[in-house]
Design a protein around this nucleic acid. Structure first.
Length: 342
DNA sequence: CATCCGTGGAG
DNA sequence: TCTCCAAGGAT
């Protein structure tokens, strides 16, 4: 069982000093050390967008969202379909539904003011342990234990944890908690995450640039990149199905609203067959359907071949201008629609 | 604790 | 081409 170094204050000072110089400049961030705290709305929005999402991918969405909806009250007033279309392409669409539910809860049940405690934040839709701690620390200066994938990796290396993830998660959380102090909680959390993102990277870490190697058991072992150990993950199955691109004579395409639960929940989509290896499937309406090729797409837990068929016709669909559809569809349907138009 | 839930970039 | 995986949450 790894033990915490006796001079935690020196370790903390070394990392915070490093952060003062090397903090990444991100659009939702305020500079380190400054007394002024960032707007909780912007912190929350950025944290939700960054869940399992890279900084470059989330950045343009954050800029667009804050431009269109500068306050949580503005966001709460948005219509569901408009919000889902704005989120299109960012993935994990349950986040968008929860984002709206959360904004509406804050607006109606908290007078438009975010709760300033972890407990209060945790009760909000789409806010889990990580996001609650991050908002509490960064926006409200609470000494919360902010543990994301970066922090887990840094702790696994710092303490040379031999237990593989996910089993090691409770221990990694405990180790991270042992380094928490009342001083600069938001900067501490972001310093750990910046270190993990830019220096203590998953592959080929830059230990030569790291401010805390003198305390790092992984560095001392000579193989820091070995941590965190991982259990092998199951392989991804392959599925295939059909997507139908039905157009009218006004440049519109027939779409459907997907159910809130499940894959791509709440998003607009093309009419499709089910995706369980159907040899063939009946189209949504009779028409002169033509083959338009196929597209490949990879989801988190399966890959998909979607055969595209096109026709002109009518029916009970959400008829949407093609340009609007291309902008508001999840990527798999955008690719299928582009195939159908080609 | 396991599974489900997207996407795109890096190596 | 292929594997990994990024500021996770809900069930």
């Amino acid at each position: 069982m790894p033990s915490v170094p006796s001079d935690v204050p020196a370790l903390r000072a070394a990392l915070l000093d490093w952060y003062d110089v090397h903090a990444r400049s991100l659009v939702w961030r305020t500079p380190p050390g400054v007394g002024t705290r960032p707007d909780p709305y912007r912190v929350w929005l950025s944290e939700v967008m960054l869940q399992q999402t890279t900084t470059p991918h989330a950045t343009p969405y954050f800029l667009e969202f804050t431009r269109r909806w500068p306050t949580v009250g503005d966001l709460a007033a948005v219509e569901d379909g408009e919000l889902m279309a704005a989120w299109a392409g960012l993935g994990y669409y349950a986040r968008a539904r929860n984002l709206l539910a959360c904004a509406r809860a804050v607006a109606s049940e908290h007078d438009g003011v975010f709760p300033d405690t972890e407990e209060g934040l945790l009760a909000l839709p789409g806010v889990g342990a990580y996001t609650a701690a991050a908002v509490a620390a960064i926006a409200f200066g609470r000494a919360a234990n902010v543990v994301d994938g970066n922090v887990e990796r840094v702790m696994a290396r710092l303490f040379a944890v031999e237990t593989p993830v996910p089993a090691a998660r409770p221990e990694l959380r405990r180790l991270a908690g042992s380094l928490i102090r009342d001083e600069r909680p938001g900067d501490w959390a972001q310093a750990l995450m910046d270190l993990g993102a830019t220096v203590c990277r998953p592959k080929s870490p830059f230990c030569g640039d790291c401010p805390i190697t003198r305390w790092c058991a992984g560095y001392a072992s000579g193989q820091p990149e070995r941590y965190p150990l991982k259990t092998k993950k199951a392989e991804r199955p392959h599925r295939h199905g059909f997507a139908w691109v039905l157009r009218d004579d006004q440049g519109r395409v027939g779409l459907v609203r997907r159910p809130d639960k499940g894959l791509l929940g709440g998003m607009l989509g093309l009419p499709t067959s089910d995706w369980s290896s159907t040899p063939d499937a009946a189209p949504p309406v009779p028409a002169g359907w033509r083959e338009a090729g196929a597209i490949e797409h990879v989801f988190t837990h399966f890959s998909l071949t979607l055969t595209v068929r096109t026709a002109t016709g009518q029916g009970e669909f959400i008829w949407t201008p093609v340009e609007e559809a291309l902008a508001g569809l999840p990527t798999v349907f955008r690719k299928a629609l582009e195939r159908g138009l080609a």
